[in-house]
């Protein structure tokens, strides 16, 4: 029973991970490592590998596009950009998040 409780935090994180990625990309275009460091800073992911399938999924849903950009060191990097659909999706998710957050706040202050 104890373990099940503990498992909720990653579950919660997972639920909003895609929202977070879209948020990061709404500020500026970024490549995978930049997204990772942002997410890590805000303690949203534990292992980096998690990001890649999510990026692929978002890309398949046409929320993201990417372009190749030369870098000073090493091979060209994949820079991800929000698409028009992605921005719409982000607003949707934002509303949903606000609602959730309000609901939780309300419950807290009961």
């Amino acid at each position: 029973m104890e373990k099940k409780k503990l498992n909720i935090v990653p579950q919660m994180r997972k639920g909003i991970l895609e929202y977070c990625i879209l948020l990061i990309l709404s500020k500026r275009d970024a490549y995978a490592s930049e997204i990772i460091s942002e997410l890590k800073e805000s303690k949203m992911i534990v292992v980096e590998g998690t990001l890649y399938p999510l990026l692929t999924r978002l890309k398949n849903g046409d929320y993201l596009t990417y372009r190749w950009e030369e870098s000073l060191q090493g091979p060209p990097r994949k820079y991800y950009t929000l698409s028009e659909a992605g921005r719409e999706f982000l607003t949707e998710l934002g509303t949903a998040w606000d609602e959730l957050s309000n609901a939780v706040e309300k419950l807290k202050n009961l």
Partner: peptide, 16 residues
Amino acid sequence: IIGKPEEIFEETEEDE
């Protein structure tokens, strides 16, 4: 850092 497959699997379990 990148995570073992099991860990990645765990975090994206639902859809996978």
